[in-house]
Amino acid sequence: MISGKERRRARRGESPEEVQFPVTPMLDMAFQLLAFFVLTFQSPTSEARLDLYLPTTPVALPGAFRGQARVTPPKRSEMDLENDLRIRAEADDLGDLKSIRLGETPLPDLEALADRLRRYSAVMEGRPLRVRISADDRLRYEEAARIIGTCNAVGVASIRLADPASAEGTRDRP
């Protein structure tokens, strides 16, 4: 649609008014954004993390020496310990994973472990699933990380590391 102004201009034989798009501010902004992204750029990586919460053992509470001793209920972590599922991993002489058990059930591989943990998770009906991993010290960390990662993948809420040497892994401390 030709406007009246353009029609008059065309009648007079003048060339239509040139529309100037102000590119400069846009370019300024674009370069600033580019500079920001270039400066904050970190190359993509497959690094990821496995979170562990290992609460410390409760220590003697201060205040008891003035005759103000209080009966303190056991920490929730201590009460939960009994309900943890126990994963036992044994290593061969080279540090490779020789066998893995969930409770008393031997499992062929980590996929079976994941499958079983998923079924436990379904049985728990939304309650947090907790596991305690007890592995031989000579087990390679790579294998241990795969076990921890498997637990993580199936949505285990809490992972504890137990000392295999201490009373068949009943200790909470790693």
Binding site: E47, Y141, E142, A145, D163
Partner: peptide, 29 residues
């Protein structure tokens, strides 16, 4: 990855004994 689980667990245990409770293990996805 070639370290033993015992050495990592020992490190976590030592740190835990000093009062640290939150840990994150860096791995490759």
């Amino acid at each position: 990855k070639a370290a033993t689980f015992g050495s990592v667990r020992g490190l976590l245990s030592t740190a835990q004994g000093r009062g640290f409770a939150r840990f994150t293990l860096v791995v490759l996805r």
